[in-house]
């Protein structure tokens, strides 16, 4: 087992969230456990407030859980500090929903992509330039884009930049937090194909957080359904989509709009 979550609990101190007046003091995560193998994609689905983003951040070592552990190769990475944490950051990376705001608007694409190389490997300027060129090519972007700024690129291109940056550290797990939700439908498929190719090439695993169930069906091998910070149900894609056991899962699946109009069914 590559990555495992055991009994993760997390409660946030009273947040003054304007758009969620109902569950101010409810725990964000309650007893969440999951497992992720090598070369596998686990989709974490649920509606807003389910806690999937919080889980993603715990796994990516951006938030510390109150209780429970995240085990990478049987080693607890959920509460590391200093140099140790820095080492393990390379193994678990994250890409965000809004690619545009996940990049420093004042730095060029090339600088953003090569920053991890500077931090972790102390790479020289020449080494970084070469690596950036290679990475841009790998994600299907033109090498000349290294000197452009985020605002000059489209959403799809920016998400590829974010992927390139994550790749520069050769991660074993990438937490994808709604990576294609903000993209146009015609571009979503491009980014998903890229992620699939990279997985086949490098054997990476993905923790794929999304609310879009149709993407899950095609992209993931296993699914975990969450609601209000708890795991409702989990299993393979076939199990969950063909024979869901929990009522919530059933209502979720029933709400997906049918792409075939009634008159043609």
């Amino acid at each position: 087992m590559l990555l495992r979550g055991d009994g993760i609990h997390k409660t946030f101190a009273r947040q003054r969230r304007l758009f969620r007046s109902d569950n101010e003091s409810a725990p964000a995560l309650t007893n969440v456990s999951f497992s992720l193998r090598e070369n596998e994609t686990l989709a974490v689905v649920g509606e807003s407030g389910a806690g999937k983003s919080t889980l993603g951040r715990v796994v990516a070592q951006l938030i510390e859980p109150d209780a429970g552990q995240v085990m990478l190769d049987d080693r607890d990475i959920s509460r590391l500090r200093g140099q140790e944490q820095l080492t393990f950051r390379k193994s678990v990376q994250m890409i965000f929903q809004d690619a545009h705001s996940s990049l420093d608007p004042r730095r060029t694409i090339g600088d953003s992509i090569s920053e991890p190389m500077l931090i972790h490997f102390g790479a020289s300027r020449a080494e970084r330039r070469t690596a950036v060129r290679d990475l841009l090519g790998r994600v299907g972007l033109d090498a000349g884009m290294a000197d452009t700024l985020p605002r000059q690129l489209s959403g799809g291109q920016l998400q590829r930049v974010a992927i390139a940056r994550a790749l520069s550290m050769d991660p074993r797990v990438i937490v994808c937090d709604e990576p294609v939700s903000a993209l146009d439908v015609s571009v979503q498929a491009q980014v998903l194909n890229l992620l699939k190719d990279l997985q086949a090439e490098r054997g990476m695993s993905y923790l794929f957080i999304t609310h879009d169930l149709s993407v899950v069906e095609a992209f993931a091998s296993r699914v975990m359904v969450m609601r209000s910070g708890q795991v409702i149900e989990s299993g393979s894609v076939d199990e969950i989509f063909d024979s869901p056991t929990h009522d919530y899962t059933k209502s979720l699946l029933a709400s997906i709009p049918n792409p075939v109009p009634k008159s043609l069914r």
């Binding site: 990516a60 951006l62 950051r89 990376q93 994250m94 420093d104 931090i119």
Partner: peptide, 22 residues
Amino acid sequence: HEAFIESSVCIGCSVWRIVGIH
């Protein structure tokens, strides 16, 4: 609270790097 700051933490930037450069 911008995503790129969170992202910088994620890739391993030190606090000083984040404050000074980002």
